[in-house]
Simulated scan of single mutants.
Amino acid sequence: MRALVRGTGSIGARHLRVLESMGVDELYAWPVRKGTGSTERADIPSRTVFVDTYPNAPLDLIIIATDTVRHVDDALGAVEQNPRSVLLEKPVAPTVQQCRPLLDHPRASIVSVSAPLRFHDGYVELAQLLEQEGTPTSAQIVSQSWLPSWRPGRDYRQSYSARSDEGGALRDLVHDIDYPLALLGTPDTVVARLGRGVLGIEAEESADLLWHSSGKEHPLAVSVRLDYVSPVKKREIRIATAHSALSWNVVTNSVIVERPGSVPELSVHPGDGDVDNVLARQSGTLLQRVGVVVDGLRHEYNAASLQAGVLAVAVCDAARLSDRTRRGETVVL
C-alpha cells in the first residue's frame, strides 16, 4: 500500500500515524508550510517521506487535511494524480458554490469526505435499530464542547475556527449534521439562529437549527444544537419512533433503547472511544473498496460520498441564510 497525506497539522499527523499502524508500506507527507521535516515532528512517524510534490509512484490513497479554504483546490490536484481513492477532510468547502468545481470533475466519484462518526459501532447499531423500530417522529441532536481546549498551547482566536470565512460552529461541527442527514434524510426547510459573544471570535460560536422534512410516512422535525462554548462535553442524538426512543451517546459510546413498560436496553461500544481506531476503520473501508485487503472491517461501515459532504455544507449555507433572513430557508445544492 502507498498513501500520501497533504497537510501535516494535528489532523494530518494523526492520519499519518493511523496509516502507519495499518501497515501502509510507503507513507508520504506533503506539508503546506515548507521546512517542516520529520526531525521536527515527534507526532509524525519517523519513516514518513516528506515531499513537496506528488511522487511518481501510483498512490492507493491521498488524504487532504489542509485548511478548509484550500480543500477544493487541493482535492482537485489530488484527483488529477489518478489515485485509487481520495479522502477529503471536512467540510468540503466553506460554501456549496465553492464545492462546484470538485463536484463537476469527471473523477469526483473517487472522493469521499471524512465522516468518522459513521464508523462508530454505536452509529451502526443505531441505524439498524432505526430500521427495526419504524419511522421516526422526531429527533434531537446535541454537540457541545469548549473551543479553547481543542488545541492546547495554541490561541484559539488565531485558528481557522475563529475566522468567519472558513470556521464557526456550523463548519467545525459538521459531522453532527452529516450523520443525522444519513439517518433521517434531507430537510425541506431549515430555520436557524446563530450565537456569538462568549469567546470573542468573528465566526459563530453556536448554532440552533430546526429542520423539517416530509419523511417517509409523515413530516419529521429535527432539532440540532451545536456549540463550542460548553466546557462540559455533550454529544448525542435521541430519536423517537411510534414504538420506542433510541439514544446514542458519543461521549459514553453507548446506545439505549427505551420502550413503554420495559427496562431500557443498554449496549456499550468501547472501541469507539479510540479515535485512531475509528479513523483506521474509515481509511480501511476506502482501501478495501478499491481492492486492498483490510482485515477486521464490518460490511456495515459506509464512507460519506462527496455528494453527502456537499449536502452537509448546503445545510450550513441554509442555516446562515436563515439567521440573516429570520425565516425558514430551503437547502440548495
Results as ranks from 00 to 15, higher is better:
2 R>P: 09
4 L>T: 12
6 R>W: 03
9 G>E: 03
10 S>D: 12
12 G>M: 03
15 H>T: 03
16 L>D: 00
16 L>Q: 03
19 L>T: 03
20 E>Q: 13
25 D>R: 13
26 E>I: 10
27 L>R: 03
29 A>K: 10
31 P>M: 08
33 R>A: 09
34 K>I: 00
35 G>A: 07
42 A>I: 09
43 D>R: 11
48 T>W: 02
51 V>K: 01
51 V>P: 01
58 P>Q: 06
59 L>A: 08
59 L>Q: 09
65 A>T: 14
67 D>Y: 02
72 V>R: 04
75 A>C: 13
77 G>F: 00
80 E>S: 13
81 Q>S: 02
81 Q>H: 02
82 N>L: 12
85 S>V: 08
86 V>N: 03
92 V>Y: 08
93 A>S: 07
99 C>G: 01
103 L>Y: 09
104 D>W: 01
105 H>A: 05
105 H>C: 08
107 R>M: 04
107 R>A: 12
110 I>H: 01
113 V>T: 13
113 V>K: 12
113 V>M: 14
116 P>I: 13
120 H>R: 13
121 D>T: 10
126 L>W: 12
126 L>F: 11
127 A>F: 03
127 A>R: 11
132 Q>T: 15
134 G>I: 10
140 Q>R: 15
142 V>M: 01
143 S>E: 05
145 S>Q: 07
145 S>C: 06
149 S>C: 01
152 P>T: 06
162 A>T: 05
162 A>D: 00
164 S>M: 00
164 S>L: 06
165 D>W: 02
165 D>C: 00
166 E>A: 05
169 A>T: 00
170 L>P: 01
171 R>P: 01
173 L>Y: 05
176 D>M: 04
177 I>M: 10
178 D>F: 02
178 D>Q: 14
183 L>T: 03
188 D>V: 05
188 D>P: 00
189 T>Q: 07
191 V>N: 07
192 A>M: 11
193 R>C: 05
193 R>M: 09
193 R>G: 10
202 E>V: 09
204 E>V: 08
209 L>F: 07
213 S>N: 15
217 E>M: 04
218 H>T: 09
219 P>W: 05
219 P>L: 05
222 V>W: 09
222 V>G: 11
224 V>L: 15
232 V>M: 10
233 K>E: 14
233 K>L: 08
234 K>D: 10
238 R>C: 11
240 A>I: 04
241 T>Q: 02
243 H>T: 15
245 A>D: 10
260 P>G: 14
263 V>D: 14
264 P>A: 15
265 E>G: 11
266 L>D: 05
267 S>G: 07
268 V>N: 12
269 H>M: 12
271 G>K: 15
271 G>W: 10
272 D>R: 13
272 D>V: 14
273 G>T: 11
273 G>V: 11
274 D>V: 14
276 D>T: 12
278 V>G: 08
282 Q>V: 12
282 Q>R: 10
283 S>D: 08
285 T>H: 05
287 L>G: 12
287 L>E: 13
292 V>Y: 07
295 D>E: 15
295 D>G: 13
297 L>N: 10
303 A>C: 13
308 A>F: 04
314 A>C: 06
318 A>Q: 07
319 A>R: 04
322 S>I: 05
326 R>L: 14
327 R>D: 07
